[in-house]
Each structure stands twice: as C-alpha cells, then as structure tokens.
C-alpha cells in the first residue's frame, strides 16, 4: 500500500512548524516526503502480530529526583538572550488570548 503525501499536507506541516516556503520548495519537499514515506513503508512487510508497540529502545525507567529547589538563574541572566525585554519581562510580538491548555 502506497501513501501519497500531497502538497496541501506539506503546507500544513510547514504552517504548524511556523515555517514559510516558496512554491518551488513545497514541490521539492512534497517529492522528498513521498520518497521518505515510501522508504519507511518497507517496514509494513514485517509481521508485528502480537508485538507490543515500542516507543524507546531499552527498558530504562526515569529515576525520580528529590523535590528540592536548586540555585536558579538571575533574572538578568535569564533574559540575556532575549531580543527584547521590558522591566524584567520577555517582550514578544502582541498575542491575544491565553496559551494555557
């Protein structure tokens, strides 16, 4: 079974990633995406019946760390890379609405 990636899908992914491309670049990515997917689709030939989905290699678990605060950055240090700052805040282009999900 061959999945076909459309130009629209590439544009959508670009938009989600906040990236802008020329029409030529979109064409080129569409072609490349299709080649990548076709390559990965080879995996469909493997019989995975009864195999648990795996998100990572190895059986590591996260060792939890103590709930103790550590030394933090000085506000001035934290803001050092900010292109714009106002009175201790990062200043960004105006956005409306709450980003809390």
């Amino acid at each position: 079974m061959h999945t076909n990636i459309t130009r629209e899908e590439v544009q959508r992914v670009a938009k989600l990633a906040k990236l802008r491309f020329s029409d030529d670049e979109i064409d080129s990515f569409t072609e490349q995406f299709n080649r990548i997917v076709a390559y990965v689709e080879k995996l469909n030939e493997v019989d995975c019946e009864g195999v648990e989905p795996m998100a990572r290699v190895g059986k590591d678990i996260t060792p939890p760390r103590a709930d103790e605060p550590e030394k933090m950055l000085e506000p001035a240090e934290a803001l050092k890379n900010a292109p714009k700052k106002t009175e201790g805040f990062f200043s960004v282009p105006k956005v409306i609405g709450d980003g809390v999900e």
């Binding site: 760390r65 709930d67 103790e68 933090m72 506000p75 805040f89």
Partner: peptide
C-alpha cells in the same frame, strides 16, 4: 504544592518578581 518544578529544580514558589524562578531547562 511541590517545592521545585515538574521537570527541573527551579523553585516553584509563586509571586516573586518576574522571571526569578527560571533555569536553563525552564527557558
């Protein structure tokens, strides 16, 4: 009401001056 943040050891207290509870992970 944890003392530190979920995935880094910056303090979790509320109400201090802006951007005082940060570290490279938070940023």
């Amino acid at each position: 009401l944890t003392n530190s943040k979920a995935f880094s050891r910056a303090a979790s207290e509320f109400g201090p001056a802006p951007n005082t509870n940060t570290d490279p992970v938070v940023l």
